[in-house]
Amino acid sequence: MKKISCILVLLALLASSVFSQDCTLYIPGTIGTELHYQTTNAKGKVEGIYTQKMLSVKENGSQTTFKLLQTIMDPKSPESIIKQDTFEFRCDGNVFYIDMEKYLNQQQMEGFKDMEVKISTEDLVYPSKLSTGLELPDGSISLEIGDGILNMTTNIVHRKVEAYENITTEAGTFKCYKISEDVKSKMGFVNVQLHNLVWIVQDIGTIRNESYNKKGKLGSTTELIKIIR
């Protein structure tokens, strides 16, 4: 009986290992890993700094959930923390999902903390294998605030893998998938449209992100500047 139990446990561990290999992560897979980012405007002035740290990895059947802590610091005083939030990512089978709540303006949401907020999302999807020319599914998030007093929506559309190329930042040189996407946001009668170019790499995530306005003018650039493992 003991031998049978040991074999069953071993098979379960092997199944878990195979699953983990099937799902390609675009975040760090190791607890404790820290990613340090810097955001600059079109003139190269630093406007923001933040870190992302992997907190936990939990498996439940075919699904694995990853919890990550994001810490936003004052660029003029990096030791001063402005805000911290946790975000969840998941692998289900061999597909990697990014929770669209990650794209909410957390400071803006503070203004609605005493109001009823209904959120519906369609998470961003990354298949196990990317290739140049591949079109990716859209993502979206919708908020109904105060029983319909205010509605907010963000849609990430026209996602496409444009290239597989090297990107160099202060953190090093990485072979990345370059993904283009359009971000369309609406709050009340206000509409904002951006075009993003994002470079991502397996087991880390975003290496560089360039954001352009609807006229094609560069607005900001975010880069990975340090990795602590």
Rank of each mutant, 00 (worst) to 15 (best):
E34Y: 00
M187A: 14
K217T: 09
A171L: 00
D74H: 15
H195Q: 14
D99S: 10
K67H: 08
I98F: 10
I7G: 05
I225G: 00
E170P: 02
D92Y: 05
T222P: 05
F19Y: 15
Y37S: 08
I81Q: 05
G111A: 04
T154Q: 13
L69K: 14
D22C: 07
L134S: 01
L8A: 15
E122F: 02
I207M: 11
D138N: 14
Q52L: 10
G219P: 11
G93C: 11
C91V: 09
N94W: 05
D99K: 09
N196M: 09
V183P: 03
S128M: 07
H36V: 12
L224N: 04
Q63T: 15
L134K: 14
S5Y: 00
Q63D: 05
Y37P: 01
N155Y: 01
D114H: 03
S140K: 15
Q106S: 12
E47V: 07
G188R: 06
I72A: 10
G44T: 00
V192K: 00
M100T: 08
F96Y: 11
E162M: 14
T173K: 11
V46F: 08
V192H: 02
T173D: 06
Q202P: 03
S140H: 10
Y164E: 09
T64Y: 02
M152K: 00
L218C: 09
D203H: 06
T206H: 08
M187H: 09
K76L: 10
G205H: 10
L130Y: 05
G188A: 13
G205C: 08
G44M: 12
Y177C: 03
D182Y: 03
N166M: 10
D203G: 07
N41T: 04
Q193H: 10
V183D: 01
I204N: 02
E162R: 06
L13Y: 00
G93T: 04
K2S: 06
Q70K: 14
N209S: 10
N213C: 09
D203A: 06
E162Y: 02
E59L: 01
Q108R: 13
M73G: 02
K113P: 05
D147P: 08
L104D: 03
Y97S: 03
E181H: 09
F66N: 03
T24E: 01
K184H: 11
D147W: 11
N105M: 06
Q52I: 00
C23M: 13
D85W: 04
N105E: 05
D123M: 09
Q70I: 07
Y212F: 15
T168W: 13
S62T: 15
Y50L: 11
T173I: 06
K118H: 00
G93V: 08
C91A: 04
E34N: 11
Q52M: 01
D123Y: 02
S211H: 00
S185A: 15
G188C: 06
